[in-house]
Nucleic acid binder design. Structure first.
Ligand SMILES: [Mn+2]
Ligand SMILES: [Mn+2]
Ligand SMILES: [Zn+2]
Ligand SMILES: [Zn+2]
Lengths: 124, 124
DNA sequence: ATTACTTTTGCAACATTGTTGCATTAAGGA
DNA sequence: TCCTTAATGCAACAATGTTGCAAAAGTAAT
């Protein structure tokens, strides 16, 4: 399975990389203005995830968003916090903020999803 | 708006309180075996949230789950971690585990949603 | 440039989750 | 028991995500 570069993939990748905030499928669809089918967006996102170009974040309302990978060029890890603004609805990666916690024994952690919500600097 | 105790509400409340893991709408629906309509479950859950009897958790896959409130009888706070097992699919509250983190200035936090996924003690 | 191979796409169809309006039912106090 | 109104059932709808399959397009070799 050799991945190919298509119009849709190129444009979606570009969109996500140039966006300061994480984007949902529907937000991407609106930006593309009919460049490709709805289904194609889902499939392209899946491919970009596979290729470690983007990562997936579940927002506090359950909406799934996508953001570019910044710091995981060497190794793929996403242990940073996300911030969801209740006013402007933006979801941003706080790449520098990593939480600490103390788990009971016998839990094996492989992923984390940490999102704080409230007001972002622009809105507060 | 004086809340009333109905069969549906009583049963759903009972289900969630007696469950060790957080439950989704569909899991509740399966347990109820036709006791009430699908829509009623959504509406009952909303009421139980309003009454601070249960709290809402967004799982790592975006599925919304509900668990009873343990420690927020005095004040309503849910700053504990949740654990999502990738094998048995259970989502549990780790009431005693609260993370620490250092946020940049100007962010106003009002809620947090922190879910770790991996293998739970039973599955690892 | 043409061909051949295979990935990617569009479209239709479907499943799941969640919401709303409205007529009917039932809880609970008088 | 009666009355008020909260709660329910049902139908209809919207949003999100998935799948199968034929058609289109990317890529490398000729
Ligand atoms: Mn991120
Ligand atoms: Mn919890
Ligand atoms: Zn904001
Ligand atoms: Zn498990």
């Amino acid at each position: 399975m050799k991945p190919r570069n298509t119009k849709a993939k190129t444009k979606i990748k570009e969109l996500i990389i140039s966006s300061y905030t994480a984007l949902s499928q529907s937000e991407i669809q609106n930006s593309l203005q009919g460049l490709c089918d709805r289904v194609t967006i889902y499939r392209v996102l899946e491919r970009l995830l596979d290729e470690d170009i983007i990562h997936k974040i579940v927002n506090t309302d359950g909406v799934i968003k996508f953001a570019s990978c910044q710091s995981c060029s060497s190794e793929h890890s996403h242990n940073h916090i996300h911030f969801s603004c209740q006013k402007c609805k933006s979801l941003t990666c706080l790449e520098d903020v990593e939480p600490t916690y103390k788990l009971p024994n016998n839990y094996k952690v492989s992923e984390m999803n940490f999102t704080l919500s409230g007001l972002c600097p622009q809105c507060s």
